[in-house]
Structure formats: C-alpha cells, structure tokens
Write a protein that binds this DNA or RNA. Structure first.
Lengths: 133, 133
DNA sequence: ATGGTTTTGACAATCATTATCAACAGGGCT
DNA sequence: AGCCCTGTTGATAATGATTGTCAAAACCAT
C-alpha cells in the first residue's frame, strides 16, 4: 500500500515551486535550508517514485547528474533547457516522435525509446553573455 | 605539444575494434584482459582526448555511465542503440537538426546543442525476447 | 645521449546514488 | 480509542564511476 507522508508532500511541493530542473542533491539541500529535516535517501526515493508515477520528469544533465522537474502534463514531451540559468521550456515534438519511431522501425528495432533534449542559452542569458563579452 | 604514446594507440585501437558503445571501465577491463598494463586513469584521459578531437563519440547511458565509440565520420550524427546487445547504428537526422535549431530559435535560445539518441531492441534481440516470452 | 616537458599510473579523494536496517508512523480493524 | 501490521524513514555505510595528485618514466627535438 502507498502511504501519504509529509515527506513525500514536501518533495512534491518543492518540485512544484521550482521552474527548472533540480538535482536530487540540490532539492535536498533546499529542503534542509528551508528547515525540513528530511533525509537524503528519502528525497531520492520520493523523486524516483514521482518519476515512476509520471508526476515528475527526469533527465540527465551533461555532467551526469539526474535532474527532476514537476511535469505539468502527463503526456510525453521534451525540453529546451538553458544551460546557464536552468530555465526550462516544455516542447512538443510530434515530428521527432514519428521520426524516432520510423528510424527505429527501418532498422528493425522495437520498443524504441528516445532521449531528445535541447540545451542552449535562453534569450536572457544570451544577452548577459553578449554584454560581458 | 601532443605526444604519441602506445597507450593512446591502444585505446584508439580498442575503440576501433568495437562495434558498439563501451564504457571507460569496460574498455579498461578489456585492455587489461588483453594483457595491456594500461592504467585506468590513462584510459579516461585518452577517451576524453579522443572525444574532444572528434575521433570518438560520447554519450551517457540511461544508467549514467559515460559511453564511448569510435566515430566513422567526423560529421554530426546520432545513434540508434540496442539496449540489450549494445548494437549501434549511426543515423542521420537532418530533420531533427533543423527542428532542434528552429525550436531553440523560436524560444530565443542560442548556441543550441541537442541530445538525440534512440534506444530500443534490435531485430535480433526482439526475436530473442519474443521466443523467451 | 641530454634536457625539458608531457604523460603515465597507482592511489587517494570526490561525488552522486543505492543499500542497510533498526526505529517509526500510517491507517485499517476491532 | 487502541493495536498491530507493514510501508516508510533516515543516519550511515557501501558502491561505483570519475577526477585529482604527484613522483617516476617516456617522448622528442637538439
């Protein structure tokens, strides 16, 4: 049976209150900073659960950390992520969906899953960099 | 200055002789098994170098390991990877390239880089699974 | 062969993540 | 309400990949 604990709520809430992706470690620190005595292992477990139930989305940063984000929809979608400030835009990619499926099929692959994420500099950060350069 | 050492050649050779992606750890084990006394740190360094010079391609497995592969071309391309046997097919994806660029531009992002890889079961493994199911 | 510099490699350090396991708490049941 | 069973927690240890360290060895031009 699945029980309702304040810890799980805390993690869910922390995710909701965040615009971009957060690492498990970061989320734990944030919760601690906010005074919550939640344990690190619990944060990992809660995040894994949320990811499984589809309430959260997970991806890997180029540095190898696992990042999580509250998902507004439970549909399949991808992300456009600012590599500087972490701003995230959800993007739809029907074209890519079908492309991935086609390519897989053409090569005899089944059960195709794909990793499609775009990293870049958002407008704001681009301006910031241009100014400082 | 860049020096030519047998260790670097060994890593390059081991990569060339491999069809799919290999982890740094795996490559090191393989070299050791083949009798090479090469050090683990050296393998990591060599792989990083090859990745930078474009002679090798790197991506992250869903488990978070860094995987490397000798690249037949120095052009930008993506991969279709069997999640069971590691078979890798290089795929071209002009459509995706432009899509990624467009999406980024539409949202004011610059310097867009993208991670596009497709994981699935190759025909062989699909058959194997079907038989055992 | 020599010298200056890069590279190597054994090992320690780091970092994220997972496992352990005893103490604890949720919630259905009486 | 009180109890008990079972899922959950959390401090800490364990794991596993990767990176840093630094003296010794190798490379290459001279």
């Amino acid at each position: 049976m699945k029980r309702n604990t304040w810890q799980r709520e805390a993690v869910r809430g922390a995710l909701d209150g965040n615009d971009g992706f957060v690492s498990a470690q970061g989320l734990h620190s944030a919760l601690h900073a906010a005074g919550s005595p939640i344990g690190l292992a619990t944060v990992y477990r809660a995040l894994a659960d949320l990811a499984v139930t589809g309430e959260a989305d997970s991806l890997q940063s180029p540095e190898g950390e696992s990042l999580y984000r509250a998902c507004s929809t439970d549909e399949h979608h991808h992300h456009l992520i600012c590599r500087n400030c972490g701003l995230t835009v959800e993007i739809e990619a029907d074209a890519v969906e079908t492309w991935a499926k086609d390519v897989a099929a053409q090569n005899g692959f089944t059960g195709a899953a794909h990793v499609v994420d775009v990293f870049g500099l958002c407008a704001e950060c681009t301006a910031k960099f241009a100014a400082s350069a």
